[in-house]
Amino acid sequence: MTGGHSGRQAYTGVPRWLYALAVLAALVVVLPLAAMVARVNWANFIPLVTSAPALAALGLSLRTAAASTALCIVLGVPLAVVLARGRFPLLGLLRSLVLLPLVLPPVVGGIALLYTFGRQGLLGSTLEVLGLQIAFSTAAVVLAQTFVALPFLVVSLEGALRTGGQRYEAVAATLGASPGTVFRRVTLPLVLPGLASGAVLSFARSLGEFGATLTFAGSLQGVTRTLPLEIYLQRETDPDAAVALSLVLVAVAVAVVALAYRRPGGRGPDGKAGKQASGERPTTAAAPGGALT
């Protein structure tokens, strides 16, 4: 090092052999996608992706993915805060159970949901008496997507909470702020980038959900047949349509993931983007006597 400025520069050296392995890793993902693009029947691409079944499936996928993402935010934010800030027995077990859908085959999640909300399920019979039938309905699609997508938001937000630390929250508490005020005025603004990234990834996971949806919701056109299910059915009868619809789903997924992993100002989606993560104190309003309002 020749000076303080050079000592603060980020280390960018990468061994050449790592580049070779990185190229191989990229080919594992990119090559199948390129093969699919080469297989597309471009002459009939527009008619294939604008057919009535395709548009109905795409519209249903977008609506249910948006609904499940909203449900993930409502349920996942409190859960992530409890996992990151809570101190109680069996916290590790709770975290393991919450993250279980990340490693379970989706069809297993669909079976679990079916035996919970189905007609003969744990809660299904009670709901049936109340006139609510969840299995094999659009609500079942949303629940299946939420089941598999919720861990993505929880992991992203819990990581942002742990990275951000608790110093600003501790200062706000010493100024007389209640836990609810600290959460609303300090915690949420600090982790907003992580929350946004988690929500986008949850949306992407919901959009591509297949196994749990098929098992728990079935495949009823206009009701539960999302775009992945439409692609699966078209694969048997019209391979060209299946490939065209697959390309549409890939394009939407790429756009969603690119949005989640954009790098504003040279920073990644790890909850550190923005002024607050770079060391600036969060904006809070102080009442007379120093208490936050």
Rank of each mutant, 00 (worst) to 15 (best):
V30R: 03
G268Y: 15
I111F: 13
T116W: 00
P179A: 00
L31T: 11
G271S: 11
L153K: 03
G222Q: 06
V108A: 04
Y11L: 15
V14S: 11
P105T: 01
A285C: 10
L102P: 04
G118F: 07
G110H: 05
R185N: 07
A35T: 10
K272Y: 14
R63M: 03
A285N: 15
R205K: 03
L91A: 09
L247W: 03
P179L: 01
V77E: 13
A38Q: 13
N41P: 09
L91H: 02
A67Y: 06
V23Q: 04
A285E: 15
A253N: 11
L83C: 08
G218Q: 04
G279K: 12
L24S: 13
A212R: 02
G109V: 05
G268A: 14
V98E: 05
P282C: 07
L161N: 09
S206W: 01
G131L: 09
S178A: 02
A67L: 14
A258S: 02
P89W: 01
A70P: 11
E169D: 14
D270C: 12
R185S: 14
V148F: 00
E209F: 07
L102G: 04
V254G: 04
L113D: 07
G59Q: 13
G266M: 09
R225P: 05
F183V: 05
P106S: 12
A149V: 05
E169F: 00
T64A: 12
T2C: 13
A291Q: 12
G3A: 10
A54N: 12
L201T: 02
S51W: 08
Y11H: 15
R205T: 02
L93R: 00
Y11C: 14
R267C: 07
V248T: 09
L97Q: 01
L122W: 13
A57Y: 05
Q221W: 01
R235G: 07
P269Q: 06
Y11Q: 12
A140I: 11
L97D: 06
A277P: 08
G86E: 04
T116M: 09
G13Y: 10
L292A: 04
L130E: 07
R63Y: 07
A135N: 09
D270A: 10
P89V: 00
L229Y: 06
